[in-house]
Amino acid sequence: MVNHYHFYKFNSLTGEKHSHRLTGYTEYMFGIGSFHFHVYFGTTSFNGHYHVYSGITGLPVKTAHGHKHKIAGRLNMANLHSHYYENYTHENIEYTGGKILKRVLS
């Protein structure tokens, strides 16, 4: 499978009477063909505090126009609370060129 990444945008579960928006792109792809994963990470803020998150996606789930990956986990503890999140990446994929990736990793 050609190296690619996915966009994601969804809200965490509500905790402490608010939720956080997680928005970003998956990063590095590792694995082969339909047995591949992506790394993701980011920060999300709300009303003066922020949480960080990171993880590894689930395996690809086939869709009508390609595939998507499950993203699930827990935001780090901040202001004495945390939030769980669970959703999927968008099925549309963007491709990264091998030459660009090799330059970045060199």
Rank of each mutant, 00 (worst) to 15 (best):
K17Q: 12
T63F: 08
G98K: 09
Y84T: 06
R74H: 08
T44Y: 10
H4F: 05
S12N: 06
F41V: 01
V61N: 09
E27D: 15
N79D: 14
L105I: 10
R103A: 09
K68P: 03
H69Q: 04
G42P: 05
L101I: 15
M29G: 03
H18T: 04
V52D: 07
F10D: 05
S19L: 07
H81A: 00
T14S: 11
S12V: 02
G66Y: 13
Y40N: 01
T96I: 15
K17E: 14
H4W: 07
G48T: 01
T96E: 13
T23S: 07
G98M: 10
L101Y: 13
N92Y: 12
V104G: 04
K70Y: 12
E86L: 03
V61Q: 13
E27W: 11
G55L: 05
H18S: 07
Y95T: 06
M29Y: 12
E86H: 09
I100G: 06
L80G: 07
F46L: 02
A72P: 05
E16L: 11
S54D: 09
H6P: 04
Y28P: 00
Y84I: 01
V2Q: 09
S19P: 08
S106D: 10
M29I: 04
G15N: 15
G58R: 03
Y5L: 04
I71F: 10
L80I: 07
Y50E: 11
N47Y: 14
G42H: 05
Y95H: 11
G66K: 02
H36L: 01
V61M: 07
M77H: 15
K9S: 13
L105V: 05
L80K: 14
L59G: 03
G24C: 04
G58C: 06
V61P: 02
L13V: 06
A78T: 13
L101C: 06
T23W: 12
E91V: 01
S19M: 09
K70T: 08
Y95S: 04
V61R: 06
L22E: 05
L22M: 09
I56P: 03
G58T: 03
G98Y: 14
E94K: 05
T63G: 02
A78S: 15
Y40F: 14
N11R: 08
T96L: 09
S34I: 10
H6E: 04
Y8N: 02
N47I: 05
R103Y: 14
